[in-house]
Design a protein around this nucleic acid. Structure first.
Length: 832
DNA sequence: AGCACGCCGACT
DNA sequence: GTCGGCGTGCTC
């Protein structure tokens, strides 16, 4: 039998399958999706089996055999192998990169080379008696086997000698493929029968040992040594001496690391659904029962109980004997969220998130692989959970940018979900209070004629228990300035904070400072320098004293006087959470603030700790960046304050209005979710902007109409698709040269080949392509490399990715000679 | 990506 | 006449 193997060498020339023979003794272990060790050139590397055949086209003299199979159960399924092939074409990545992204990091190969001492007859006398050689030999023989790296590190001056000894055969070099994490084994205490325990207790003299025996009487189940010592605050020595007497059994057990092992989750029952919830639930169930593929967009206002719809739909999915995946943005993967799923589905849930260690994550993944769980909940990469009978994939907060992976493979988890659901004849539920324009555009409600199988829209327009949406007050910060208030806090927000303090209620303050981009704004009239060609704000560049557009390259000298009102109050923006915290302390002495941002939540578990403190009302204010805007649900929060709504709005991104609307709506939804009514105060310099106005009225529909009109006019998604090509090199001049050549190539190809073909097709008018750039990237230099980008905007499915791929290949000579790097992002989320 | 093969300058 | 620089090309 022959296997086609994708090898672990992410390079263009090796981005194809290589044929290997499957030795008869390995045949029963080799499957499509198996991870194997194969000889490749002079070394041994890892690969994935993607096809199995009885014959091969390759010269049999060249073919080598698979060396070993690395797992008992293939870590990938045939479906996921197909998906990887599709991803490599769609997102222009190496197939191995796509495959690697589907398995936990713990299974990523670690290559190690080690040396051992050869049989004595190959070790010559000069090896032993020459002092330097002798020392190396003694070192190796003492250790038995030494990693080559360790040996070279230990004897840096003897590198040549070591190589020579390897060549002469005195030292034997071996190569291993090692997993990063081994299966965890834990010392576990197995207590005897209770009667026996009681007998031992009478003989026992030591107080600590008696404590242990007592505990085991009350808790007769096996328990790990570490849990036992932690529970009783005794040393492991105490327990070991009991084991030495033979009273208890202490043994290593192969266990799953369960990050939630120490927590208990009270079981919860389904809540009763409102009419709208029930309608959505029934439609999803109907499709699941008919075993057809359908994408739903569940548009439910904040607090409308979307999660309960997910939970009950998943329940139905499990009852049909099928499996479910739930994707949540990383920052929303809070203990609160996990708890809801754990308490509804208990041990049937695996949780995958970034705070897990490699080992913990591997164990959660293995529960899925070994069919121990039926539901996987996690961030983006959980979409690859190796289930074999998927019925439902839920994507919560579907508008979130974090579903797009920013490094290779630059996949969009929503698209992966649809691919998988189509394969399994399963449903996808995209849920959000503020659906992305793209998702909404493709719904049946919008009636896009292009889409053969439109997304079915499900709406929930009211909150559970008929609770009202919070009242939103917009504060015009320009007026505040005119009134002489230069503080971070406007007088209405100041007053609102004081009221909550007096009433002992809680509040959430959002400061959305993203990135370092500074935009220029007039503090008197709110004027922001914008690009005349792209309708996005210009970015201030201090070194050249100019403002520039990152889309088309437009630049102008930055002004010291506002062109609109003549004021000199021109500033550029950027306020940190720390400053707000200080200011709060000054204005409200004794105020208790929890600050949540990158600095305070980097430690493992700190996120949970802060939120628990806030829930226990140990603080009045939760102050933070976007992470406070999502999914939190605290009954005593009655005020949400947005310090500066404009920060997102003025980012140089065509989605900035959409993101502002989403953020405003989401954060407003944190208030008044329970009995106490909520209030929202939004501070802004652009109170008339439609994204802020619509958010304040909770008016999604109007926002979508206004924003879509903008997108159509400017030709941005969903009216076209984008491919972003980023080039980087140490020299700017070369970058410009190659960038221009690339753009020329794309335009020529389009004009000479594609355009003619598509213009003659009946849908010809729908096909178009334009190429912008090259212009400097918003982050023009990273690690001493300059970055330039080109943007391809196209309409119609005419293989634009393929064309870009060809264009990049045509630049290959330069890439090799000049160490030029080209990165391609299909459907970019961030245009940085 | 590695690693080997292969063809031109400074040393015994 | 040899050691070694890294340019080019292959890996089933």
């Amino acid at each position: 039998m022959y296997a086609k193997v994708i090898v672990d060498v992410p390079a263009k020339q090796t981005n194809r399958a290589f044929d290997y023979t499957v030795p008869p003794e390995l045949e029963q272990w080799v499957d499509i999706g198996s991870r194997v060790g194969v000889p490749f050139g002079p070394r041994m590397i890892q690969g994935f089996v993607v096809e199995l055949h009885e014959t091969t086209d390759i010269d049999t003299a060249k073919i080598k055999a698979i060396d070993k199979v690395l797992d008992i159960h293939a870590p990938l399924t045939e479906e996921l192998i197909q998906l990887a092939g599709w991803m490599s074409k769609k997102y222009l990545c190496h197939e191995i990169t796509a495959l690697q992204s589907m398995i936990p990091g713990a299974l990523k190969a670690k290559y190690e080379r080690s040396v051992t001492l050869a049989e004595t007859n190959l070790v010559t006398e000069s090896d032993v008696f020459e002092p330097r050689r002798g020392e190396v030999i003694r070192f190796v023989s003492q250790k038995g086997s030494v990693a080559l790296e360790t040996l070279l590190g230990r004897f840096p001056a003897e590198q040549a000698i070591i190589k020579e000894m390897i060549n002469a055969g005195a030292l034997v070099e071996e190569q291993h493929i090692k997993d990063r994490v081994s299966k965890k084994k834990l010392l576990t205490v197995y207590p005897p029968e209770e009667a026996q325990l009681r007998g031992y207790m009478e003989q026992c003299t030591g107080q600590r040992q008696r404590d242990v025996l007592n505990f085991l009487c009350a808790n007769p189940a096996p328990i790990t040594l570490s849990e036992l010592t932690a529970a009783l605050n005794v040393s492991s020595g105490t327990v070991k001496s009991l084991a030495d007497k033979g009273w208890i059994l202490l043994q290593e057990a192969d266990v799953f690391r369960d990050p939630y092992a120490s927590r208990t989750f009270a079981p919860s029952d389904p809540l009763s659904l409102t009419k709208e919830q029930d309608d959505a639930y029934r439609q999803i169930c109907g499709v699941m029962q008919s075993r057809t593929h359908q994408v739903f967009l569940l548009h439910g206002v904040t607090g409308s109980g979307k999660t309960e719809v997910y939970l009950q739909a998943i329940q139905q999915c499990l009852e049909l004997g099928r499996e479910a995946i739930v994707l949540v943005p990383e920052i929303a993967l809070t203990p609160q969220m996990v708890e809801r799923f754990k308490s509804r589905f208990g041990d049937l849930v695996a949780v995958l998130h970034s705070r897990l260690s490699d080992g913990e994550r591997y164990d959660e993944w293995r529960k899925i692989q070994l069919r121990k769980v039926k539901v996987a909940i996690g961030a983006r990469s959980a979409v690859f959970a190796p289930f074999t009978d998927l019925g439902l994939i839920v994507i919560d907060e579907e508008h979130e940018a974090s579903y797009k992976q920013e490094d290779s493979p630059k996949y969009q988890a929503k698209e992966i979900a649809v691919f998988r659901a189509r394969h399994h004849q399963a449903s996808v539920v995209l849920g959000s209070a503020t659906p992305s324009l793209e998702s909404f555009y493709y719904t049946n409600a919008f009636g896009d004629p292009r889409s053969a199988s439109p997304v079915r829209l499900l709406s929930i327009s009211s909150r559970v228990e008929g609770r009202p949406l919070p009242k939103v007050q917009i504060v015009d910060m320009r007026e505040q300035l005119r009134e002489g208030n230069r503080s971070i806090f406007s007088s209405p927000l100041h007053k609102a904070i004081q009221e909550r303090l007096d009433r002992r209620e809680q509040m959430v303050l959002l400061l959305n400072r993203r990135g370092h981009s500074t935009f220029v704004m007039c503090r008197s009239c709110g004027y922001v320098a914008g690009c005349p060609h792209c309708d996005i704000s210009l970015t201030y560049h201090q070194h050249s004293r100019t403002v520039r557009c990152h889309y088309c390259g437009y630049a102008e000298r930055s002004k010291t006087v506002c062109p609109d009102c003549g004021s000199e109050h021109i500033r550029y923006f950027g306020t940190g959470t720390q400053r707000v915290e200080e200011e709060l302390g000054k204005l409200f002495p004794g105020i208790r603030v929890i600050r949540m941002d990158m600095d305070t939540t980097s430690e493992k578990g700190s996120h949970e700790k802060w939120l628990n403190m806030f829930r226990d009302r140990q603080a009045d204010v939760l102050l933070g960046t976007q992470m406070v805007a999502k999914g939190l649900d605290f009954p005593h929060v009655t005020l949400v304050g947005v310090i500066a709504a404009d920060t997102v709005l003025n980012l140089p991104d065509f989605r900035s209005a959409e993101k502002t609307f989403q953020l405003m709506t989401q954060v407003a939804g944190r208030a008044g979710r329970h009995e106490l009514p909520g209030e929202v105060v939004v501070q802004t310099y652009t109170p008339d902007h439609y994204s802020i106005r619509c958010a304040s009225h909770h008016d999604y529909t109007s926002f979508v109409q206004l924003e879509l009109a903008q997108r159509r006019e400017r030709n941005y998604p969903p009216y076209c698709k984008l491919i972003l090509i980023t080039l980087s090199h140490e020299q700017v001049t070369l970058l410009v040269k190659v960038g221009e050549a690339l753009v020329r190539y794309l335009k020529e190809q389009w004009n000479s080949r594609y355009k003619a073909v598509y213009a003659n097709s009946p849908k010809g008018a729908r096909y178009s392509m334009e190429v912008l750039g090259p212009v400097a990237s918003p982050i023009p230099r990273i690690k001493d490399r300059y970055r330039f980008q080109c943007m391809v905007k196209y309409r119609g499915d005419m293989g634009a990715a393929d064309l870009v791929s060809k264009a990049v290949s045509s630049m290959e000579d330069m890439m090799r000679q000049e160490k030029l790097q080209i990165s391609v992002d299909v459907d970019p989320q961030m245009l940085m």
